[in-house]
């Protein structure tokens, strides 16, 4: 067979994927919701910095921040944000990292359930410490 230059390019095989491909299956939807949780992680940073700034400005600004966070729009936003944050925390601590982390003890790999349990303890300790510092 003679091989020679041709100006015709073979057609690409590129199946078209619809934009809403992730609505087709529950597992796809969960994947996209987990990815979207990161938006609420970023929102929390904004919320936290507004709080820090209000406290730094003085008692009057802090009071105004508390009133602002009690408005219906902010409450709704933070309820939605908390749902996404919990989805992130539960999937990250108990589904992802127990399988992704390889911890060896005396040459043997710890089973995922043990790492998940360790994460639960760490989560409870961190939450308790935060609540203790804030509530005094």
């Amino acid at each position: 067979m003679k091989v020679e230059y041709t100006q015709f390019h073979p057609r690409w095989y590129r199946p078209r994927v619809p934009v809403f491909w992730w609505l087709r299956r529950r597992s796809y939807l969960l994947f996209v919701l987990r990815e979207l949780s990161s938006v609420f992680v970023a929102w929390f940073v904004v919320f936290l910095l507004l709080l820090v700034n209000a406290v730094a400005q003085g008692p009057e600004d802090y009071r105004r921040f508390l009133d602002w966070s009690a408005t219906p729009g902010m409450l709704l936003l933070n309820v939605v944000a908390l749902c996404f944050i919990l989805l992130h925390a539960v999937t990250w601590l108990f589904t992802l990292s127990p399988h992704a982390m390889v911890v060896r003890l005396r040459g043997r790999r710890l089973p995922p359930a043990v790492i998940g349990a360790g994460n639960l303890v760490a989560w409870m300790l961190a939450s308790a410490l935060a609540a203790f510092l804030i509530l005094g």
Binding site: V41, I85, H88, A89, W92, W123, A126, S127
Partner: peptide, 8 residues
Amino acid sequence: SALLIPAL
């Protein structure tokens, strides 16, 4: 984020 944000 998973450890600290839920409580805060």
